[in-house]
Computed example of a mutant assay.
Amino acid sequence: MNPDFAIILNFDLKTSNVDQDYLVKEARNIGVRAIMADDSFLEACQKYSIALLDKQAGLDLTAENVIDTIVENRIKGQATIINLAVEADGKLADDNLKMLSAINDWMHLFGHALNESEPSELKTSYGYILTNRHATYQKYIFVKTPLPDKLTVSGLKQAPNRVEWIADRTEAKFSYDKQELTIDLSASNSEFAWEIIRIQAHRPEDDLGETKF
């Protein structure tokens, strides 16, 4: 399965009275890149650049546990397949809409980090570290509140250029000594239980001087 598919919506149709365009657009709008449904969804998937996958067993989740599940699976390098029942009237149940809203709120800030990440070789004293598979100089630390005052990361060979809270793009204070990075977590003010810190690691091109023409 494509590793960019962190979340997959598995549509369980209770009726043929379905607005495929609406459902696929809802998936696209919350940062989902793939769905599972029958072939009647193919045109809508092509329209919104969403992958249509063969059906597999999914999970019945709620607004209260969906982000925990998504993050925990991603940390393991796995996708989360979420069951969504389409009722007889062609609509989604209120509890499913509430869950999609919770996903949307979180993915609006952290979706890029979730979709692009894979397990990292670095180690942290708190939370979990993943690597951007397309830009490996970027590392993501997934941390869950309540947070400690600080955390340490081992394995970086050079001090990073920047460490920031993704939610508001504010810089996090840090120090680096003997291949150990210490990050101050006291400035966190996010409303979400799961937050993500981005480490912008040192790159060879950062040592190059300005090119003059």
Rank of each mutant, 00 (worst) to 15 (best):
T80M: 09
P119I: 08
G209D: 08
T182Y: 11
M36V: 06
D206V: 12
L147T: 09
I50F: 12
G90L: 03
T124A: 14
E205Y: 12
Y137G: 02
D168F: 10
V18A: 11
P3K: 13
I30L: 15
D19F: 07
K76F: 06
S190L: 08
Q138K: 14
I141V: 15
S16E: 12
D94Q: 06
P204D: 13
D89L: 08
D94S: 11
S188P: 00
V24H: 03
D95K: 13
R203N: 12
Q78M: 09
A135N: 15
A201E: 15
K14N: 15
C45R: 00
A88F: 04
N73H: 13
I75N: 01
D21R: 10
E64R: 10
F11C: 10
F110L: 05
G209Q: 10
E191T: 13
G31R: 00
Y126S: 13
N189V: 03
L23M: 11
G58M: 12
E26R: 07
Q158S: 14
V153F: 00
P119S: 13
E26H: 07
F142H: 11
T124I: 10
E171N: 13
T211D: 00
A79P: 02
A27W: 05
V163D: 04
S49W: 02
Y176N: 04
A113G: 13
D206C: 09
L61C: 06
T170S: 09
S16I: 05
L92P: 02
D12S: 10
E26N: 08
L97D: 05
A159L: 01
D149Y: 01
S16M: 06
D184M: 11
N189G: 04
V163P: 01
F142G: 05
N65V: 10
G90C: 08
E118T: 05
K139P: 01
P3C: 08
V163A: 07
V66F: 02
I129P: 01
A44I: 04
A85G: 03
L109P: 01
L185I: 09
A113P: 06
L42E: 15
L181Q: 11
D68M: 06
D184F: 05
D89Q: 07
T62F: 07
D21H: 07
V71C: 09
T136F: 06
V32Q: 05
I67D: 01
H134V: 06
K76G: 00
T131P: 01
K14W: 03
N29Q: 13
A135Y: 09
I166C: 06
E191H: 04
E191I: 02
I199T: 05
E116I: 11
N96V: 02
D95N: 12
Q78Y: 14
N73I: 05
L100P: 03
T182A: 14
E121V: 07
Y22L: 10
S120D: 06
N10R: 11
I129G: 02
D206M: 12
L185Q: 05
Q20C: 14
D105F: 08
N104H: 15
V24E: 03
S190P: 02
H134W: 11
D177H: 15
